[in-house]
Amino acid sequence: MSQITNRISQTGQSTLNAITAIGYASILIWDSILLLFMGKRVNQPVRFGLVIDEIINAGVKAVPVVALMSATIGVMLSIQGIHTLSIFGAETQVTFGLAISIPREFAPLITGILVAGRSGSQLTSRVGSMQLNGEIDALTVMGIAPARYVVAPSLIGLLVSLPVLVVIGNLAAFSAAGLYIHATLGIGPDAYWADILDVVTIDDFLHGIMKSFIFAILLAMIAISLGMRVYGGAEVLGKSTTKSVVTCIAAIIGADTIFALLL
C-alpha cells in the first residue's frame, strides 16, 4: 500500500519538477528576448560581438558535419528509393521521393539532431561550469544580466545558424543524391535538378525552415536552463550535459512529429 502511495507521490513530484523546469526555461528565454528588443532602455544591451561568437560556434563550425551527414542521408535515401522503386520498375521516379522528403523532413531533422549534439552539450557544460564557478553570480553582481550576456547571444546564435544550416543540409543532400543517381541510373545533372525544382514547392522548403526556428528555441531553452540549474559539483555537471543532449534530441523529434501531424 505504502509502495503505491510512494509511487504516486514520486510521479507527482517528478511532474512538478518538470513543470518547474519548463517554467524556469520559458522565463529565461522570454527575458532574453525582451532584452534583445528593449535591453538598451534598461541598460542591458545585447552585444553584437557575442552574438557573432555564438553564430561561429553553433553555425559556422557545424557546417562540415551537417554537410557530410546530410550528403550521407541523401545517398542513403537514393539507395533505398531506387531499391524500393525497382520492384515496380520505376527507379527513375526516385527524384520525386527525394524532393518531397528532404526539405520537409530529413534536412531539418538531421540538422537539428546534429546541432543538439554539438551545441546542446556545449551550452549546458559551458553555462553549468559558469554556474559552478560562481561566474553567473559574479555577472549579476557586476550589473550584467546573465539573460543578455549569456542567454540572448546563444539564442540568437542558434536562431540564425539553424535555418542556414538547414539550407546547407538541403543542398548537400540533393547534390550527393544527384551524384549517386547519375552514377547508377545515368540521369544527368540537368535533368535531375530540373526534376527536383519541379517537385519541391516553396511551401515544403519553408516548412523545413520554420521547423528549424522552433528547434533553435527548444535547444536554447533546454540546454541553457539545464546549465543554469547545475549546482553541486563536477559530477552533476556531467550528468546535466548528458541529460541536455538526450532531452534536446527528444524535444526535436517530438516537435517534428507534432509538426508532421498538424501541418
Binding site: V42, N43, Q44, S129, M130, N133, G134, E135, D137, A138, T140, V141, M142, G143, I144, A145
Partner: peptide, 23 residues
Amino acid sequence: SIYKRMDLLKGIGVAFQSGALMS
C-alpha cells in the same frame, strides 16, 4: 525592478572567495 537593481549593483564591487573570474 530587477534591472534597477542591476543598475544599483554597478556602484559596488565584489571580490568573491574563489575569484569567480570568467574562466
